[in-house]
Design a protein around this nucleic acid. Structure first.
Length: 213
DNA sequence: GACCAGATTGTCT
DNA sequence: GACAATCTGGTCA
């Protein structure tokens, strides 16, 4: 991983996750999601997220309280909440806020950084045609919450996983590469019926891997 | 670009 | 029984 042979980059620890949910959502932009799997390591830079605010948010899976499905969001921040949806897809969230509150941050898009061939293989088993490219990198690999889960090989057995530990963890921003950190765009969330007015979607302005502009 | 139908099943009421 | 924090491939423009 010569890309990260830089002393300022490190695995984000528990303290990083112990903060206001909206602040955490924005702070996750530009960090690197890493998954070490038997197929190899894949790394994606987080470029788009959405915050879900539990009992204060009718769009949240935790709005009506705890169930077997959403229990991870009621635990410690900085763990994986992975849910199954539309009969065939999984989406990945970072749990947020203190225990009992039920907040989560949906990762909607990452920018492929390493293991791009592995991502391509995983995605091609789901769809046939990946012609669209950005330079050498296919744009369609990870520009959506279910797409990135497939590309990065995230499965439901990682439900509740502590994100400070292998095989799934998050690295801090590369401040050397981000001398000017990109501006954050704040907008409404995608694909929800309730809470459409809330401005809880955040993405890196101008980033080509964001799911929708 | 915009809009739309279909896939497919766990989860909750 | 209804619905879902989605994606793909089709149509029309």
């Amino acid at each position: 991983l010569c890309i990260f042979n830089i002393p300022t980059i490190m695995v984000l620890q528990k303290d990083f996750y112990r903060k206001n949910t909206i602040t955490l959502a924005k702070d996750l932009l530009g960090t690197f999601l890493v998954h070490d799997s038997s197929e190899g390591t894949t790394i994606g830079r987080i470029v788009e997220v959405e915050a879900y605010l539990g009992a204060d948010d009718p769009a949240s899976h935790t709005y009506r309280g705890q169930t077997p499905r959403n229990r991870a969001m009621f635990g410690e921040p900085g763990h994986a909440y992975i849910y199954f949806t539309y009969g065939m897809y999984y989406c990945f969230n970072v749990t947020a806020a203190e225990s009992g509150v039920g907040h989560g941050i949906l990762v909607r898009a990452v920018e492929p950084v390493d293991g791009i061939e592995i991502m391509g293989r995983r995605r091609k088993s789901s769809i046939f045609n990946l012609q669209s490219t950005i330079g050498e990198t296919p744009a369609v690999l990870t520009n959506g919450p279910a797409k990135l889960v497939i590309a990065m090989g995230i499965t439901k057995d990682l439900y509740g996983h502590d994100l400070t530990m292998p095989p799934l963890y998050i690295l801090s921003r590369d401040h050397f590469k981000e001398i000017e950190f990109q501006e954050v765009v704040t907008t409404t969330r995608v694909g929800i019926k309730e809470g459409r007015d809330k401005l809880l979607r955040f993405y890196i302005k101008g980033n080509r891997f964001v799911s929708k502009i």
